[in-house]
């Protein structure tokens, strides 16, 4: 189920005088079961890039292979691809439209042409996966809180049982509690079902804790691609493109410069704590 992206470029509004190149020869491989963080500044091309992965936007040049098949082939079934690569847009709660939550989650699987029983089963499963309370299932989606609405929207995509789940800034506009809830939920989901997850964000803090690999985009190009530890060792370059490494990285580097022998590649607070205690000889 791997996705191979081969040198895709994309230019907005070709031939209108407002042309803008959003992607410049981006190549990468996404393996089954990976948890990837896609990071970049606003306008770096992240959102455009992910819309290519399920065929919503067609690359101006380059090709994408899903499961070994070229998705730009004439007889390739785009709708099937969209059911396999689930894309949760930014502020997905703005796409809710049904009279109750359950019906809204049913929308996706219904479009796949499943039987009523299958559709409802999937909707139940998806709502359970995002941890929404059962008492809410038959309420209007517009009565929920921001965080709950977002879960419903994510469930709407999960109900299609995608093999790859892409989340575009799932934590934007949520409070710290809501943010952790959503990300924990995605992590649990990934471990439970083994689906591939691509998490788009501009916050390193968010991503560092959860993902196995980070891709950094800048100005339409893929700038770095590696494990969080590798990426954060470039924290000076990250700063130059308007991003930042997690705060822990800064503390650890400062400590190191101050003469304390700590591990600068620590990412989470716990790792940092262990490393500092060890350096102080108190573990």
């Amino acid at each position: 189920m791997s996705i191979i992206v081969d040198k895709i470029s994309y230019t907005y509004e070709i031939g209108t005088g407002f042309e803008r190149q959003a992607l410049k020869e981006v190549s990468c491989v996404i393996e089954k079961g990976e948890f990837i963080g896609l990071i970049g500044h606003t306008g770096s091309g992240k959102s455009t890039f992910i819309q290519h992965l399920n065929g919503l936007v067609r690359a101006t040049s380059g090709s994408i292979y899903y499961d070994g098949q070229d998705i730009y082939d004439k007889d390739y079934n785009m709708r099937e691809l969209r059911s396999k690569v689930g894309l949760v847009f930014q502020y997905p709660e703005h796409q809710l439209f049904e009279t109750d939550i359950f019906k809204d989650v049913c929308f996706g699987p219904k479009n796949l042409g499943l039987t009523k029983a299958d559709v409802e089963l999937r909707a139940f499963e998806a709502l359970r996966l995002v941890g929404l309370d059962e008492s809410l299932y038959y309420q209007s989606p517009f009565d929920l809180s921001g965080g709950q609405k977002r879960r419903v929207a994510i469930a709407g995509v999960l109900a299609m049982k995608p093999e790859v789940l892409i989340l575009d800034e799932p934590t934007a506009g949520l409070d710290p509690k809501g943010r952790d809830d959503i990300l924990d939920c995605v992590k649990a989901l990934q471990q439970e079902t083994g689906i591939t997850v691509i998490l788009v964000s501009h916050s390193m803090e968010d991503v560092a804790k959860y993902v196995g690999r980070i891709m950094v985009m800048n100005d339409g190009m893929l700038m770095f691609n590696g494990t969080p530890k590798e990426i954060f060792s470039h924290y000076r370059e990250l700063e130059e493109i308007g991003l930042a490494a997690p705060q822990v990285t800064y503390i650890m580097n400062d400590l190191k410069n101050a003469g304390l022998d700590v591990d600068v590649s620590a990412i989470t607070v716990d790792e940092a704590k262990a490393s500092i205690l060890k350096a102080l000889g108190r573990n």
């Binding site: 399920n54 969209r82 949760v88 997905p92 703005h94 796409q95 929308f107 995509v157 299609m160």
Partner: peptide
């Protein structure tokens, strides 16, 4: 944006 989001859900 909404059309794309619904297309992503198979519309």
């Amino acid at each position: 944006k909404i059309m794309k989001a619904q297309m992503a859900r198979g519309a």
